[in-house]
Design a protein around this nucleic acid. Structure first.
Lengths: 206, 206
DNA sequence: GTCTATACTCCGATAGAC
DNA sequence: GTCTATCGGAGTATAGAC
């Protein structure tokens, strides 16, 4: 009995993921706000009402996608920093890993960072990984200051705002103007590796 | 005869503007991609088919809004710089004027800078003012270099990418995270005035 | 330039049989 | 967990009378 219910739960989880995959494809094709549950059901090969056995509403699909995206992004920036000494080097690697993830997951990134769906607010659960991302970069900044790579002002409100806006700006520009460019060739993403240097110029140590 | 046709042309132009105003309200309420011509017709007090006497399609409305927005934005950045010596001071004023315009015209700005409507590409005519904006800031950068306020590298590809991304990033962050904040209090817009200083730190003269 | 009527497609969501 | 049937509504766009 436990066996069968395990199998069923696994099968169900697979279907949930499959629906989210299809929803992602649709958002990429029709725009983030243009996601239709009926279209997702068609692609899955079931009738629209059946889909409501998996998600109670359209917003619930958005919320699951939001959470999945935030988790994946958190994982990406953490893996980027892994194995590097905390500080500027880790921050550089983490920024690049995050930027690559965004360019490879554009529909998800739009849902997460641009909020293009009127009326959709992510649940606290879905939003939680975003807080962890924030903590991650705060810790790397603190480490860089500790190591004497940045002036303590880099951790100020101004420093946080300018730092996060720098990466957000490069990605926003790249996504809007040249979304299909390869990362290294993008008119904006090509400068992601310069960001740690920019921070040093803005907040030179000592 | 010329009199009446003049009056009719003026009346028609008024109605066109009125439709665009209503479309703007709707985009602010329902999201940029959620604009519906039927809803605009309802608010104007006519039936949806009548609206097609003014705009041949939904895309045509987007295109007119795009052009109106680009023209207004160009006007805003030019007025910001007016009366200042070309150079960093004019650039600071121009950046702030543009940023204030964006925060005061968020739906339009999203249409212009984020491209959230799948399948919509602005016409060359509608896009033209955006090229003028680019030229405007290029000229101000050149003037600042000429006056010895910035290193010539500020005009490089890197300088242009970082400079435009800085302002785009601050605005993108503010719009996504705190769209209703007053300009001076916004967690991100409050640092717009720091941007010229950031440029100097990045590209110190000499 | 306004209307009615219409063609056509689509959506989210629910009820209830199997 | 799948289906059919359905509710109740939306939308873009065109034809043609007035």
């Amino acid at each position: 009995m436990a066996d069968t219910s395990d199998r069923r739960a696994r099968r169900r989880a697979q279907t949930l993921e499959e629906i989210l995959d299809l929803a992602l494809d649709l958002m990429a094709e029709e725009g983030v706000a243009g996601l239709s549950l009926s279209a997702a059901a068609r692609r899955l090969g079931i009738r629209p009402p059946s889909l409501y056995k998996y998600f109670p509403s359209r917003h619930a699909v958005y919320d699951a996608l939001f959470e999945r995206g935030q988790r994946a992004y958190l994982e990406a920036v953490r893996r980027g920093a892994a194995g590097r000494e905390p500080g500027l080097a880790a921050m550089a690697a983490s920024l690049e890993a995050g930027a690559r993830w965004v360019m490879a997951n554009q529909a998800l990134a739009q849902l997460m960072f641009w909020r293009p769906v009127p009326g959709f607010e992510p649940s606290a659960r879905a939003y939680a990984p975003a807080l962890a991302v924030h903590d991650h970069f705060t810790a790397l900044t603190a480490a860089a200051i500790e190591r004497g790579e940045l002036h303590p002002d880099a951790a100020s409100e101004e420093g946080q705002a300018l730092g996060s806006s720098l990466i957000a700006g490069l990605l926003s520009q790249q996504l809007s103007n040249e979304p299909d460019a390869a990362f290294e060739e993008g008119r904006f993403t090509r400068w992601v590796a310069r960001l740690p240097g920019v921070l040093v110029a803005l907040y030179p140590p000592r």
